[in-house]
């Protein structure tokens, strides 16, 4: 069982030291061995549950929160916006 820890870490935005990588690789191999114990069944077809329909929301506007309340937990705020390191525009 080859698990590409580096690739998964990149996808999950996590960073590991080489020692941690090794540790995680070993632990994940054990866990993956455990979760592979699934029954042999046909798993084709879409994952959808028609017996569980949803009630939709009416298209109505409701305003309950001020900007200050919503940004109160933000690590860095400037000019009414949260701030992140400069991004290359995408």
């Amino acid at each position: 069982m080859e698990i590409d820890i580096k690739r998964l870490a990149r996808l999950a935005k996590l960073k590991f030291t080489p020692e941690e990588e090794e540790k995680y690789a070993a632990q994940m191999a054990n866990i993956v061995a455990m979760v592979e114990k699934l029954p042999d069944l046909d798993a084709s077809g879409p994952l959808i549950d028609p017996d569980n329909p949803m009630e939709f929301r009416k298209d109505e506007v409701e305003k309950k929160y001020s900007r200050d309340e919503l940004l109160a937990n933000a690590p860095e705020v400037q000019a009414g916006c949260v701030v992140v390191p400069k991004t290359v525009a995408e």
Partner: peptide, 8 residues
């Protein structure tokens, strides 16, 4: 004028 990128 800002050191970072602002998010709205």
């Amino acid at each position: 004028s800002f050191a970072g990128t602002l998010v709205d």
